[in-house]
């Protein structure tokens, strides 16, 4: 029987609600495997596990329960071990690494912030900033919408202006979040957001973060902001590039000297 792994934390095992279940249909009971002061949250792995919404939700819920009060290193969805013994062996082999990451993430949670433009608001904004666009638009409107060529010309210029604005607003969001974040990570660029950022913050710092986002939403009305959190630190389970670079360059300096 192969073993599905949700996440890794320390002993003592986090209190889990009675009957907590994870992936599979019927959902498999969640259990813990302990080894060398570390705990893996696991369940039996269903044979036909697929990335369905229900399974993703189960994965996320187990991690949300387990990480309510302490850091848990979340596994990426769909991590399956040959058996329980292999999970134990992995915990033992990499105990030092896991402990280091758990120390680094102690007391911290991830928030994910996605920004998009409110179309009408951003169009107003680029029009207000750009007399040429305004003139073209008014001329088109006066001509009953304009010719196909004229529409294309206007549309292309507007698209460019909006695109430029996306870049500016992505930077604006990053600047607003940076002072409050222990770390910041670009989310996968896949869903058509102008910015998708994950920040690592102290649990206690979350209110300040939410207040700053609220404030940004007010001062930049063209932005639609979606905030999700607190989340297990999906985006921060490995050392950030900056931290890794620092380690690498320290190593290089040592090697050079």
């Amino acid at each position: 029987m192969s073993t599905y792994v949700y996440g890794i934390t320390r002993t003592p095992a986090p209190p889990l609600p009675d009957g907590l279940t994870g992936v599979g249909d019927p959902p498999r009971p969640v259990r813990v495997l302990e080894r060398d002061g570390l705990v893996a949250l696991v369940s039996d792995a269903p044979d036909d596990l697929k990335p369905k919404r229900r399974e993703l939700l189960a994965h996320q819920q187990v991690l949300a329960q387990a990480s309510a009060e302490r850091p848990v290193l979340p596994m990426r969805f769909g991590s399956v071990s040959q058996d329980d013994a292999t999970v134990g062996a992995v915990l033992a082999e990499r105990a030092g690494h896991f402990r280091e990451r758990l120390d680094a993430l102690e007391g911290k949670v991830e928030y994910n912030i996605k920004a998009s433009h409110d179309q009408e608001a951003v169009l107003h904004l680029v029009m207000a900033d750009n007399p040429e666009l305004r003139a073209m638009s008014e001329a088109n409107r006066a001509a009953g919408g304009g010719t196909y060529e004229q529409k294309l010309q206007l549309g292309e210029k507007v698209a460019q202006a909006v695109q430029a604005r996306e870049g500016e607003d992505a930077a604006l969001l990053r600047r607003a979040l940076e002072p409050l974040a222990a770390e910041i990570s670009e989310g996968p660029d896949s869903m058509g957001w102008l910015a998708n950022l994950s920040v690592l913050v102290d649990r206690e710092g979350a209110d300040g973060l939410l207040a700053a986002i609220e404030e940004l939403g007010t001062s930049a009305p063209q932005l639609d902001l979606k905030v999700n959190g607190p989340l297990p630190p999906y985006s921060f389970v490995e050392k950030s590039d900056a931290a890794a670079d620092a380690t690498a360059s320290a190593g290089a300096a040592r090697a050079g000297g």
Partner: peptide
């Protein structure tokens, strides 16, 4: 946050 569950997190 689906993309985080699918694309981030620990890989062993």
């Amino acid at each position: 946050v689906l993309e985080l569950v699918l694309d981030r997190g620990l890989v062993i």
